[in-house]
Computed example of a mutant assay.
Amino acid sequence: MQTTPQIAVEKGPSAATEPAAKPPHSVDLDTPIVRSGQTITRVTLRKPRSGELRGMNLVDLMQMDVNALQKVLPRISSPILTEPEVAGMDPADLLQLGMEVALFLAPKSTKTEFPAA
């Protein structure tokens, strides 16, 4: 039985000898995404820049609108997800990624009101 390689972004010189700490703003997927013989088990997000939010309604992103997340997640994810991959994602995984996006957009003054992940 053939196994598929798993992708989890692991960087640094100690990655081979020690288990890598989970990078900030990363989500371990409940249901991995399989693509061309690879399995994506973790997605790391980075804070979007204004240009990456073009055509987006910020209120939709704050409300974790599925259509808005399908547009913005491919722009800020590593490994880069496609819109069809986001559309086919487990709802629990989409919710976790959506919460990260919403926290990116919240002002610093309100972030103390949210529990740490």
Rank of each mutant, 00 (worst) to 15 (best):
R42H: 08
E100N: 03
T110N: 07
P84N: 11
M89Q: 02
P84T: 03
P13C: 09
L58I: 13
I33C: 08
A15E: 14
R46Q: 13
F104R: 03
R46K: 10
K111G: 02
L81D: 06
Q63K: 08
A87E: 13
M1N: 05
P5A: 08
G12P: 10
V34Q: 13
I40H: 05
T44N: 04
Q70H: 08
S50T: 09
A8G: 08
K71L: 12
L61S: 07
M62V: 11
G98D: 06
T3H: 11
T110E: 15
L94P: 02
E18M: 07
P79Y: 05
T41G: 14
V86W: 04
L73C: 05
P48M: 09
A68C: 07
G12L: 14
A21G: 11
V34A: 14
L29V: 11
P79S: 09
V9P: 04
D30N: 14
V27K: 06
P13M: 10
F104E: 12
H25M: 12
P23V: 10
F114N: 11
L69S: 00
S78F: 09
G12R: 09
K111F: 08
R54C: 01
P19Q: 09
D60V: 00
N57V: 12
V27I: 15
P24N: 13
L81E: 10
D90V: 02
R35K: 13
A102C: 03
R46I: 10
S36K: 11
P5H: 07
V9L: 14
